[in-house]
Simulated scan of single mutants.
Amino acid sequence: MSILTSVSRALIGLAFASLTVAVLIQVIGRSTGFFAPVWTEELSRFSLLFIAAFGAGLAYRSGDLVNVDLICENLPGRWPTRLRLFGAMATFVLCLMLILPAWRFTSIGVMQTSPALSWRMDFIHASVLVLILSLCLFSGLRLAMMLLGHSDGRPKVFSEENS
């Protein structure tokens, strides 16, 4: 799991770096009286899509996605663990069901290009597929760890990971 986490973090870093470069070019261009190149707008949007795509699984892992743990964690006995197991299973199954439609959506982009960068849109549409796969992998790993008895399903916080 640490390899998957490291790869996801590195890819988020690359997407964030491209966003930073695009925004920096926009700010410098506009503040010096010149026009910022139009492709920087597109690159910013595409970078944000991939930040979300690569970050979804990590957000699931760390518990940063929207959750109802205020109610669930205050239930008696083993109910919180059961609900975390159900949540991991539901997320995993839903993601499995969405992989094929996400693949179809991605493949539609083969016939399209972005207006400013002229990039094939299937590469951009792939962000949806990456997001689904990322959530599927991280929820599947949580589910497996819970079923094997290695985890109670609580999110893995970054500071706990390094200690």
Rank of each mutant, 00 (worst) to 15 (best):
R30L: 12
L65E: 02
S163F: 04
L129F: 07
L98F: 14
A10I: 13
A15D: 13
A53D: 09
L147Y: 00
L49E: 12
A36Y: 03
E41Y: 12
S44K: 06
T40R: 05
T5P: 02
K156M: 11
L49Q: 05
V7Y: 03
L4H: 01
L137P: 00
S8M: 08
W103R: 11
K156Q: 12
K156P: 00
I3Y: 11
R61C: 01
P155D: 13
F92Y: 12
M145T: 00
T81F: 00
L49D: 06
S151A: 10
A53E: 06
R30E: 15
F138C: 03
V21G: 11
F34K: 13
W119K: 12
A116G: 14
A90W: 01
D152W: 02
L98V: 11
T20F: 13
G140W: 04
L14Y: 15
L117Q: 02
I3D: 14
E73K: 14
A17W: 10
R61P: 01
L58Y: 04
I51M: 12
M89C: 08
R82N: 06
S114D: 13
A17E: 10
S159R: 07
V38T: 13
L135E: 04
L94P: 00
A88V: 02
I132V: 15
F86P: 00
M1D: 09
I51H: 02
L94I: 07
G77Q: 12
H150A: 13
A56S: 10
T5R: 01
V7W: 05
L85I: 02
S127Q: 02
A15T: 14
R82P: 05
T91R: 00
F54R: 09
A52Q: 09
R142G: 04
R120F: 09
G57L: 07
S6N: 15
R61Y: 05
L143G: 01
G140Q: 08
F123T: 02
L135Q: 06
F138M: 07
L19K: 05
A52N: 11
S44Y: 06
V23A: 08
E161V: 04
